[in-house]
Each structure stands twice: as C-alpha cells, then as structure tokens.
Design a protein around this nucleic acid. Structure first.
Lengths: 294, 294
DNA sequence: CTGTTTGTGTAGTAATACTAGAATTGACGG
DNA sequence: CCGTCAATTCTAGTATTACTACACAAACAG
C-alpha cells in the first residue's frame, strides 16, 4: 500500500524541524502555488531560506525541488477532492460535475493504493478451488453484488446474488464447503449481512469480505479485502464506495479468468464472438438484439 | 468539453512545423523522459535546438517549458491507460490491479471531459417537472438503472427500474407525458432498449438517453447525454463504461436534489439522520440493522 | 535571380536550482 | 549563569537551466 504525497506529508509533519514544517504547511495550505512557483517564491512565502526548501524536498526522498513539484502536480490532480470538495447549493452543473467526478477519481486512486494484493491473490486461489459463488450485499453494496454475478462467464462457475435478506440467509444456511461467499458491505456493520456471513461460514463455505475498512464484518471472514474510499461527510456527496467495490470485483474476476488457463480463455473469447454474432439481427444491421453486454 | 494534452497534441500534429513536430513526436513516444528531463536534453534527443522546444511549448499555449512539463505530468497520470494497457496472462495481481484501476480512472476522466453540461442541465429541468422516473437498461447498463432507482430519495419522485425486457416494454407502453424515461445503453444499439425508448416517446413521455456516443438509440431521445469511455479492445478488459454511467447518474441525482429547494433538502437530511438512528439496534451498538445505505 | 516570408539555430542573458560553509540558535552539564 | 556542543538555519556563491534577441538559412513569389 503506497501512500499519496499528501498522506506522507501529514505523517511526517510531526518529525519535521521547525522551518521545514513551515514549508510543509505552506504546501498543504496552497499546493497550487507551490506547484508553479519557483523555489525563491516558496522560500519567501514560507519565511525560510531556499536551502531549507531544498532540504525539505530531499528529506522526503525526492531528487530535488523540481522532482518534488512534479510529484506534487500529480498528487494534486488525484487528491484535490479530499481537500476542497463540498457541493454547494448554487453550483453550476459544470462545477457539480467536476466535483463529483473529481471525488470519484480520487476515491478510486485511494482504493487502489490501499488494496492488499496478497488478500486478492488468496481470494483468487480460493475461487479457483470453488464450485460456486454467491455474492451478498444490500442497497449500494447490493448493486455491486448484482454486477459481480453478471461476471459469471469470467469466474467460470455458477454465480448468484440473492437480493432480499431472507433469500440471502436461506442460501447461506444451506451451503457447503465447496461454495464461496463474497460478502459486501461498505460500512461492515449491517446486521443481516453479518448474519449471512456467519451462517455461510458455519456451513463450511469460504467467506470473502469486501468492506471499507477493518470492520466488524471482517471478523467473520476468511479473506478480507479492504476497498478504502473517502468518507461521505456531506449529505449530498454521492456514494463513491460503490465505484471502488465494482473495480475490486473487476480485478477479482479478471484475475480468476486469466488464471483459469487456455481452455477457459478460448471458451470465453469464442463466447464473446458468438454473442456479438447472435445479438446482431442481420450481418449488416447496426442494431443489436438483446443479450449483448450492454 | 476540454480535451486532454495528448488529444490536443495529436490534433495539432498536422499543422506543426517540421522541427516542432519532432518535439511533439518525442513527447508522445517518451513522455516520462520529457517530463523529468531538462530542456537541453529534450532538445538534444529531438535533434532540434532549445528555442524550438520553447516555441513548441508556447505554441501550445503554455507559459514556458516548465508549465508544459507540469501539464504533461498531470496528463500522464490520467492518460497512461489509453496508451499502455493490455492485460497479460502472467501479470501479477499487483500489475493487474494497477492496470484496471488506471483504466477506470482514465475512463472517468474522459467521461468528465466529454460530458455536455447543457444536456445534463436540460435533463435536470425535465426531471424536476416530472412526476415519475423510469430507468431502463440491460446487463451492465441494467446495473446502472438499478443504482439510479435506488436514488429515489434524491430525485424526490417515484423511481422504478424494471429488469426484464417485457416489463420494461409494458411500462413504456402504458406511460404518459408526466413521466420521464432514462434509457441507458453503452452501445446504443440494443434493440429491445431502443423499442422501449420509442414506445415511451410515442406515449408522450420525455426520454433521456445515456449512451457511449451518438448512437442510434440517441435518435429516439429528447435529451442526449454522452458518457464517453475508452473502447474495450481487449477481451479481458472489464466493462469500464458502467463506472462512467454511474457517475453521470450521481451528477444528475445530486443536481436534481439541490435544485429541489430547501424543503426537500431538509426532508432528505432528516431522513438520513433518522435512518442512521433506525438502523442502529441500540444507541451504543456498532452494528447496524438492515436498511442502512450499505 | 532577388526580395520577402517563414522557419531554425547561435549566442548571450536572466532566472532558478543547488552546494558549501559560516552563523545562529537551543540544550545541557558544570 | 555561562560555555560547549550539537542541531538547525541562513548567507553567499556556483552551476544549471530556462528564456530572448538576433542572425542566418530555406522556401517561395514576383
């Protein structure tokens, strides 16, 4: 899990010398300025000398001020959302769209950085050994479960995603050790989802948890995949956690499919080609019948 | 619709002088090098003089070489996926995850840049005048429709998202001019979805289309929202178009909610607070009952 | 050809980044 | 309270790098 420049900055703020901290604070306060200004201007506004700015940069592991500015520019484009977000009542559509997209992009970046590849690898291995997959989730996480179940052709084994809580519980209570349950909840505190996880585990099934953090749900899971995102502070901030969950499922399903070997790969490729053929009403028709991938 | 640095570069390549084109080609060929190298090195590798590099930068509208490098660094972090993507059989989970996240992020960036704010504004206005909303989509786009329907509290009017094609058609064939249909299809060529759009329109309902481009489906829609993403060239490339669609829905629902005015805003805020209360089994319990947002 | 325009490089200047060593500050023991 | 030492920060200088003015060369029209 590699952390972003701003996270590193916040972490190292404590252990910094007094003047270097002044620089760090300026960077956090007005990153755009630091990004485009020359070293002399940065030094002046931080009320320190140029060599101090230099030491600050090298201290963070950069080759020099230039390299730091480049990294800052990149961190800025992914990280703005975490700083300057709030959606306002009188925002134009343009502004609104920009903010929401920014936040979505930043969230995905955060999720990527926090994703534990080893746990995903374990999940992939386990799915390869399973005979069926069940995806569990409610509301926003329910959407992720539905999406995952649609990827059955990639997973290569029967997939289901029961929608209501009773169906979910029944399926868990009747399962066996040859099945794998993927239990999704951003908060990781939803009672019924937790009960389903517990029931499935009791029956010997493997339980893979996907949650926003080390939540209570995770204690009930054999494999714990954290899809970290920014917190929804604002009431009008849309549910960005879905996106991270969906992409995690993408990674999982793609990895499983690739590991299944040549035969599965050929089958899948052929299926996609035939689907395109099947969906087209006539060879020349630009219109597809139902059952295309979209 | 503002275009990315690389798109601008590709566009202007024709109208460039011979030496400046050498620079442009080097930038496209090895952007990472150009990003960190000093002007002298760039000039040398492009086999031109430094002023030529300078003219190239100012010609593109930048203040100088530095400003260009900064922009390049930022474009690079969002645009890599479009250049160096293919998912390989023997990629580690780390690499796989990195590639898939990169592509997802790049796609969202592209969607943002292509999104037509005016059309979204028109959609918002129309929804505010409607009495009900119906979301239509199949497979990946069906997921988007389900997600959108969950946002009924934001939209403030009854929302539905019938899943099978017959239900979809029946609902369209029985609708009236007080309803709005949001018809989603990335390909914009799915026959049954198109028939539903046509039927709804015939009955006088407003039809908002969300598609990956100016597709046949769009011809049947009153309002056309394009959610542009990268094409899925590789078989194993996951369906990134979903993400763009979901975020577009986020923008739409947030905008509608904000425009509804104070009363709706208060209701919504209160609902969220009460939901958190309701979902908690006891005041101290860290576990939520069903019906939280996740 | 010759004058004009357009394009490109040379050479010089200003700016910026980086380095070495001196000065200051602060901490601690006597 | 003072001196010593270490840590920290600055001054001043050097080396790079970015930018500009101008001159030369190529392409083209008359």
């Amino acid at each position: 899990m590699q952390s972003s420049l701003f996270e590193r900055l916040a972490d190292s703020l404590e252990g910094l010398r007094r003047s270097e901290r002044k620089v760090a604070e300026l960077v956090v306060r007005d990153p755009h300025f630091v990004m485009q200004a020359p070293m002399s201007a940065v030094a002046a506004r931080a009320e320190v000398s140029e060599p101090t700015v230099m030491r600050f940069c090298t201290g963070l592991g950069f080759d020099g001020f230039q390299a730091f500015k480049l990294a800052l520019a990149q961190a800025l484009i992914l990280g703005v959302a975490s700083i300057e977000l709030p959606v306002l009542r009188d925002d134009s559509i343009e502004e609104l769209s920009s903010k929401i997209f920014d936040q979505s992009i930043s969230s995905l970046d955060k999720a990527r950085r926090f994703l534990d590849a080893d746990e995903v690898e374990r999940a992939v291995q386990r799915i390869l050994e399973s005979e069926s997959l069940v995806f569990i989730g409610l509301s926003a996480s329910g959407i992720i479960a539905q999406d995952a179940a649609q990827k059955a052709p990639l997973f290569g084994i029967p997939c289901s995603a029961p929608t209501d809580t009773h169906q979910q519980f029944m399926e868990a209570a009747m399962t066996n050790e040859r099945a794998t349950f993927v239990v999704i909840s951003h908060t990781g505190r939803t009672r019924s989802t937790m009960r389903v996880a517990a029931a499935a585990r009791e029956r010997g099934a493997t339980v893979i948890g996907i949650s926003g953090d080390n939540t209570p749900l995770m204690d009930l899971c054999d494999i714990k995949i954290i899809a970290k995102t920014f917190e929804n502070t604002d009431m009008h901030t849309p549910t960005v956690s879905r996106l991270a969950g969906l992409v995690v499922i993408d990674v999982l399903s793609t990895a499983v499919s690739l590991r299944r070997g040549d035969e599965h790969y050929r089958d899948f490729t052929r299926m996609k080609e035939r689907l395109a053929h099947f969906a087209r009403l006539s060879p020349e028709s630009p219109v597809l019948d139902d059952a295309s991938f979209d």
